[in-house]
Design a protein around this nucleic acid. Structure first.
Length: 919
RNA sequence: GCCCAGAUGGUGAAAUUGGUAGACACGCUAGACUUAGGAUCUAGUGCUUCGGCGUGGAGGUUCAAGUCCUCUUCUGGGCACCA
């Protein structure tokens, strides 16, 4: 028999499908293990060789765990709602539902060819009503909850309303936008609209009139993580700041918890660091500065309250509502002119423009300690969206304040010794305080708590923790998303009843967005409740559907709830999550928030969803380049190109092999190259190369289907893993794939000699056992550490050794095939069945190594003098320190080396090296 | 500007975590078999002036450093007027 990989792979994929080999149920007799991939977004381009990298790794791990006796949940689905799918549909003139369906079909075909062990019975597709039912359900729960800071959890809104009716809000400590207090009488005196307006400031899903990232080209608002450098992440369209009424999620209520539980997670440090930065906790104080000749006060946030005696001016963000009050009549014209100019700048321009600008309002504050007058300025280096949108400026000890003060000639007062504050700001977080009355002489770290205590006791403010994290803007003025289960009665938002879910996405005659922001759902007919009340027109953003999909896999067909208690208690959480870093500040924050919310309400049993997370690197494209001699149709090979004046062109990597161009295919590639001529070197045309993003326009996209057609999927799987460490980004390059194919061929020949199955029931030799057990030990450890590349190397070594030994013993080969199974399951199944098994290899036990076969009779003991290797001594492997020492000292060569010299020290580390130190 | 990760042959990469650097694979060279080879097998392959030298560079700790410490250069990623 030959190694007919296509036949073998097709055969076993069919067997797995027919036998439902990978279907899992909650089996309490086995320990569970949940391996999850970040489900794909089915784009129009299909999968390229970069996509399966993580899927192959997780598949290997899932198969390994199964062989180790775990009940493994390894599901797959599609993140199908959202902006890119809709953009693709618009561009290709299709309905997003149709294009999504087609794309999913294509993805499935491609995934199936790779031979994954997914339980497809558990597939979830986020755009299907059976799934988004539970996205809407979770939203309703968030709408109907507030966050109680006293108990530190989300709590049903009824308890808040009851408290308002009894005592107003004075005893409430909640995550809220509300400022000030009201009494129960006041609450009762308000009409429904006013009451609801107040409740919105407490709900976890709430409507808010807020500054949003508005993207005119996409016709929608975007969340902060969807905006990079002032342009949309999708498509790179400009984004502007606009005040709009929007649905938001109160993610900030969970900021501290999201930060705290990060420590327990088995994620990489860099990913945790990214989330920490995104959450952006900073400790400091809020301080009130009374406004001169007014009852109002200006609230600021500072991390350096110790520098308060160095304040020489205050700055308001151009968006600040205080501006109107503090601006004097003679400054009004100047202020208006400045604000007008500031407003016309987009966020991006404001970020890029590093020139100092500002204007004096004419108004003053009183310094809370010294009672001196402090001028109030407006400056666009202060952000309206962070802290209170106002700062106390300490030019001596803050670089930005210093630049502003220098520019406008404002005094600079030193309060921390150690720098020359007239020359540059001294931002050090240590040093002695000067010119600071109460805290003079203290070091910064002691001055901070002292001054906060002082601020607190005088009622001038309080200790305060600020977060950079913003509430998530949760509405999109687009068609392709989950409809909100909210209707409006007299303009007041009301939740739909849970029994009315799912609220199906209606048909519309045109689903394209509008530049002005009227959502497409406005065109839907009868988009009202049974009673005729209008339903919310926005849809939910892409991250809504992906925030709880891992829970749905536990119980995908449940029509009573997102996940049943039994299923959730069995599967608990994701033991291993594999995906890219690009979701660090989006999906991975939102799901953690979503999960914690459901945890608070008791719907899930774990506070954190993803126990361990591995980030796979990206596979870049390896573009090939050809060099056309200018003005001709001649192409010159890489080595000769410097002799000509050339222009460089990208060429389709599929007609290049190992950088050698297939010149005939090139002529057929494009009509204008039909008559191309080639200047060859050694009879070949050698192409240049460049590592770039894998993209259609660079002709460097490699489709896994093509690789599989040529070498088979077992080779493809092994090769992707052999390319290097899973976490590392690397360019795709097929030049080494032959080596992997040869490896599988060698494996095949181990079981089949001269095309005949040839395995015998004989006792294995010590060498054979040693080779196998060494390999098992290495592969077992490597899989657990995700070092798949070195595991494969170990198996290659083993196969080479067994081939040299001409080993065809069942005892050895049976164990080897099980070990190979997670990596190359199809060939493993075939060999397993050739070995006479009637069940699939999936049900076998992963072999365990036995140290006794690894013990060597002798080992080489290197002996060095002053760090230089002098000779090697053969010693019994069980020698201890003293015996090694004795053997070394008695050796003739040692005596020769020591001849007349003094031995200063002898360092013996068993099984390592012996060092003689000679003076 | 701040934070994180990384740098090892012609190439992808290993290195039991401080112990003979370059395993394994690609590529390359030579040979064998062959009508043929993009098949298979065998041998060689870090550099070298054959003394040695070698893990981006410069120092340091150590009997011993790719691995630990200090400084530095470059590359990739994240955040960015966050008070």
């Amino acid at each position: 028999m030959k190694y007919e990989f296509h036949q073998i792979e097709e055969k076993w994929q069919k067997v797995w499908k027919e036998n439902q080999t990978y279907k899992v149920t909650e089996d309490k007799s086995k320990p569970k293990f949940y391996v999850l991939d970040m489900f794909p977004y089915p784009s129009g381009a299909g999968l390229h060789v970069g996509h399966p990298l993580g899927y192959i790794a997780s598949d290997i791990f899932a198969r390994y765990k199964r062989l180790k006796g775990f009940n493994v949940l390894h599901p797959m689905g599609y993140d199908a709602f959202g902006l890119p799918a809709e953009q693709y549909a618009i561009q290709t003139g299709q309905h997003p539902a149709d294009s999504t369906k087609k794309n999913i079909k294509r993805y499935r075909e491609q995934l199936d060819k790779i031979g994954f062990c997914f339980d497809w019975d558990r597939e979830v597709i986020t755009c299907e009503p059976e799934y988004y039912h539970w996205t809407q359900w979770a939203f309703l729960k968030m709408f109907n909850c507030w966050y109680d800071n006293k108990t530190n959890k989300a709590t049903p809104i009824e308890s808040l309303i009851a408290e308002f009716e009894a005592n107003g809000n004075q005893n409430i400590d909640a995550a809220t936008d509300l400022e000030g207090t009201f009494t129960s009488d006041e609450w009762k005196s308000w009409d429904e609209a006013k009451q609801e307006e107040t409740l919105q400031k407490f709900r976890i899903a709430f409507l808010s009139d807020t500054m949003v990232n508005w993207c005119p080209a996409l016709g929608t608002v975007l969340a902060n993580d969807e905006v990079k450098d002032g342009v949309s992440e999708r498509g790179g369209h400009p984004v502007e700041q606009k005040k709009m009424k929007q649905w938001c999620l109160r993610v900030t209520a969970y900021a501290q918890r999201l930060l705290d539980s990060l420590d327990e997670l088995g994620w990489t440090d860099s990913l945790k660091e990214m989330q920490k930065n995104w959450i952006g906790r900073s400790e400091g104080a809020t301080v009130y500065f009374p406004i001169k000749d007014s009852n109002e006060r200006m609230e600021i946030f500072t991390t350096r309250p110790d520098t308060i005696y160095g304040v020489t001016f205050m700055v308001l963000a151009p968006e600040s509502e205080l501006i109107e009050q503090v601006t004097t009549s003679d400054q009004k014209a100047a202020v208006d002119a400045y604000l007008d100019k500031a407003k016309r700048k987009t966020e991006r321009e404001r970020m890029q423009d590093k020139t100092i600008s500002g204007v004096f309002t004419g108004g003053y504050c009183k310094h809370p300690f010294t009672n001196e007058d402090i001028p109030i300025w407006i400056g666009d280096y202060v952000l309206g969206s962070y802290g209170t949108g106002a700062i106390m400026a300490v030019p001596a000890h803050d670089e930005r304040d210093w630049a502003f003060a220098k520019h406008f000639n404002i005094p600079i007062v030193e309060v921390v010794a150690g720098g020359d504050v007239q020359e540059a700001s001294h931002d050090a977080k240590s040093g002695k305080l000067v010119n600071s009355d109460l805290i003079n002489g203290l070091d910064v770290k002691d001055a901070i708590p002292k001054i906060i205590a002082e601020i607190d006791s005088r009622g001038l403010g309080s200790r305060k923790v600020n977060f950079r994290l913003r509430d998530a803007i949760f509405a999109r003025q687009r068609y392709w998303g989950e409809p909100f289960p909210i209707y409006f009665k007299d303009g007041i938002p009301k939740p739909l009843d849970e029994s009315d879910l799912p609220l199906r996405l209606p048909e519309v005659d045109a689903f394209k967005p509008t530049e002005t922001g009227e959502p497409p759902l406005g065109r839907a007919k009868n988009w009202t409740t049974k009673d005729g009340y209008p339903i919310e027109l926005s849809t939910m953003p892409g991250f809504a559907g992906s925030s709880a999909y891992y829970l749905r896999y536990m119980d995908p067909h449940n029509d009573k709830g997102l996940v049943s208690k039994e299923a959730n208690e069995y599967w608990q959480d994701v033991d291993l999550y594999i995906g890219g870093t690009e979701h660090a500040t989006g999906h991975l924050i939102y799901s953690r928030f979503w999960n914690k919310f459901l945890y608070d309400l008791g719907y899930v049993c774990k506070d954190e969803p993803f126990k361990k997370l591995v980030n796979q690197g990206m596979i870049q494209g390896r573009s090939n380049l050809v060099y056309r001699v200018k003005g001709t149709n001649q192409f010159v090979s890489l080595g000769l190109k410097d002799k000509y004046e050339t222009s460089t062109l990208h060429v389709d990597v599929n007609i290049v092999e190992n950088d050698i161009l297939d010149t005939e295919a090139f002529k057929k590639w494009r009509p204008d190259f039909k008559d191309a001529e080639f200047i060859l070197e050694d009879g070949k045309y050698v192409c240049g190369y460049a590592n770039e993003k894998m993209s259609k326009s660079l002709f460097n996209v490699v489709n896994p289907d093509d690789v599989i057609a040529k070498y088979g999927t077992d080779t493809f799987r092994l090769y992707e893993m052999f390319l290097g460490p899973i976490q590392q980004s690397k360019p795709w390059n097929t030049s080494g794939i032959e080596g992997i194919y040869r490896f599988l061929l060698k494996v095949w020949r181990l079981y089949n000699r001269d095309d005949q199955f040839n395995v015998v029931d004989e006792t294995a030799t010590a060498d054979e056992l040693k080779s196998l057990h060494k390999c098992i030990k290495k592969v077992d450890g490597d899989i657990q550490n995700f070092d798949f590349n070195t595991a494969i190397s170990a198996m290659m070594i083993c196969v080479n050794e067994l081939s040299d030994l001409k080993c065809n013993k069942r005892e050895i080969l049976e164990k080897f095939v099980v070990m190979l199974c997670p990596f190359a399951p199809h060939i493993a199944e075939e060999l397993w069945s050739l070995l006479g098994h009637t069940t699939t290899v999936t049900l076998a036990d992963f072999p365990t190594h036995d140290e006794k076969y690894l013990v060597e009779s002798n080992w080489n003991c290197p002996v060095s003098v002053n760090g230089k290797l002098k000779f090697v001594l053969d010693l019994p492997v069980d020698y201890g320190k003293a015996e090694i020492e004795k053997a070394v000292m008695e050796d003739e060569r040692t005596k020769a080396l020591l001849n007349g010299k003094n031995l200063a020290k002898l360092i013996v580390v068993p099984k390592k090296i012996v060092n003689l130190v000679i003076k």
